[in-house]
């Protein structure tokens, strides 16, 4: 009996140690994975941003673009009163930033079709790089110039009446970046699913993005819409993001629209990455 119970104790000990060890290895594994996710994202980002930073015409055009928006569109806003007696810019600028992010990230799969066909995307898939990191790095490359453009837009709009709420606005931009990573991943997934067919990709991505933008009240307020259009807009995730951005640009933070917007950004980012990665796994490139 005694020997049996010893035996049992021995096993029990063995059991605890080994499961503890397993737990420990697993946690260091996931730590390694987190580390490599971050460094792989950086590797992917740096590769993609290189040619962009070397092309001066891209940089000039990128800097001029937000100024064009302001110069050619803002004079039209003169007659429209802003919310709560503020400048219409307070309402218009966040919408414009959302539009910039949506359209750039929706189309960024286009750049991937070229690499899908040539074989340079496959080259990275044959390395130990984390697949989500490859996507996030690419998405961030598209988002980094947008961030700069958005900041320029905000700074330049200030003398024309935009009231600055720096922390709120930065939080708003961070939220948009998160949303952008998700949309970009979906765009990459679409690029893979459309089997290298560039025109199919263009057709699908824009027939999704355009109604999303119009239904999101990006350019004109949905409150003036007929009932059916207003109801439809409530089913558009972009609506909530736009409302969150507008609240943040007004300097509000602990309000429901901001919470809803943040939720939409997180859900789009997680779902987008999941779809993107599974599409890469399934792809027979």
């Amino acid at each position: 009996m005694v020997s049996l119970s010893n035996h049992e104790v021995g096993y029990a000990n063995l059991g605890t140690t080994s499961s503890f060890d397993r737990l420990r290895t697993r946690s260091t594994d996931s730590q390694d994975q987190n580390m490599s996710f971050l460094s792989d994202t950086a590797i992917s980002f740096r590769r993609e941003i290189g040619p962009t930073l070397r092309s001066w015409y891209y940089i000039i055009f990128g800097l001029v673009q937000p100024l064009l928006y302001l110069a050619l569109f803002v004079p039209l806003l003169g007659a429209i009163p802003g919310p709560e007696g503020t400048s219409p810019l307070q309402w218009f600028v966040p919408g414009m930033v959302v539009m910039l992010v949506l359209f750039t990230t929706v189309s960024c799969g286009w750049a991937l079709t070229e690499e899908l066909m040539s074989g340079s995307f496959e080259r990275f898939l044959a390395t130990p790089m984390s697949r989500p990191a490859i996507m996030v790095g690419r998405a961030l490359k598209e988002l980094a110039p947008l961030l700069v453009q958005a900041l320029i837009l905000i700074v330049v709009a200030t003398p024309f009446g935009l009231v600055l709420h720096p922390l709120h606005m930065l939080l708003g931009l961070a939220m948009l970046m998160l949303f952008g990573v998700g949309v970009a991943s979906l765009s990459y997934a679409l690029a893979i699913a459309s089997k290298h067919d560039g025109s199919l990709f263009y057709l699908v991505s824009h027939s999704v993005a355009l109604p999303m933008m119009l239904l999101g009240g990006v350019l004109l307020p949905m409150t003036n819409a007929p009932a059916w259009l207003y109801i439809a807009s409530r089913f558009n995730p972009l609506t909530y993001l736009v409302e969150a951005e507008r609240a943040l640009f007004m300097g509000e933070i602990f309000v429901m629209p901001v919470l809803y917007g943040a939720l939409v950004a997180v859900v789009v980012a997680v779902a987008g990455l999941a779809v993107g990665v599974s599409q890469v796994r399934k792809a027979s490139l």
Binding site: S39, D40, I43, R46, R47, G50, P51, E114, E115, M117, S118, G119, S120, E122, R123, F124, A126, T127, P128, M129
Partner: peptide
């Protein structure tokens, strides 16, 4: 692979270094 592994807009040494880091 069968295709071209290097990206057209990237510089030769950059691609090699990126690959090494990957």
């Amino acid at each position: 692979g069968q295709g071209t592994g290097s990206g057209p807009y990237h510089r030769v040494r950059d691609e090699l270094v990126t690959q090494g880091k990957a």
